[in-house]
Amino acid sequence: MLRSKFQLLVDSVSMFFLITIGIFFFPVRATAESLTIRGSTTVLPIAQKAAERYMNLHPAANISISGGGSGTGIKALLDGSVDIANTSRPMKAKEVKIAQKRGITPWEYIIAKDGIAVIVHPKNPVSALTKAQLKRIYTGRIKNWAELGGFNKEIVVVSRETTSGTFECFNKIVLKKAKVTPRALLQAANATLVQTVSQTKGAIGYVGIGYLDRRVKALKIEGVYPTVETLADGTYPISRPLFMYTNGKPKGLAARFIDFILGPEGQRIVREEGFIPIK
């Protein structure tokens, strides 16, 4: 009994060491064909789908992708810990300055366009708003849905974190840099924002249209409903480009992967995920 327990202990300890050694050595062996990508949660579904397809076509390629946000992606690119940074906003002047100091040349690709849909609870009778009304809701001047012809319920303003790329776009186009009411609930990711709006009757929020689903209702803005068509022809007013950044002109797998995303197959994935192709 004691012996077998001891045996088990020895086995598990040696297994642990083998796994640790494996983790340390495996990436080194695979560097020739591996690619790490990090950044915006908005770009994440496109990058993930594209990587899956690409790895199916080229089994030797090893692409790992994580979210974390636009700023996180750029920070990782500047630290040299990733090959590609996904962002939903252009690089900021301060970040470009840091890149120059570290000898990094950011190389920018626009891979898709994204629309920001304004969402409410499905039971909310309001189905269209203007940009001016949105601004007054988000700055806290309109406080009840009754003021907009809806039910008599307090408006629960839900926003993305003020550091996110999605917020930045919404801020520029809708709020024109006015301050969001401090009473707004701030959500760290698109998915949790949809969850919150779906379980709050009086809520209003905004997400990249790739995250729209049946649990919430998208509103017409300035009379236009957000669809791939209205975004492509520019009639829907809240949209922005999505980026991938590399350090210098990409080479090897990074170059081939970006070519794949910009090519017909990749742009089809962009459309499938609910974003707007750039070509």
Partner: peptide, 23 residues
């Protein structure tokens, strides 16, 4: 009422704050 404790604020914003900025 909804609140924003210090720890939640740090984790929500640290990922996106520009490295070395005032924020």
């Amino acid at each position: 009422q909804p609140v924003r404790p210090m720890t939640a604020n740090i984790i929500a914003e640290m990922g996106e704050a520009v490295h070395g900025s005032d924020h």
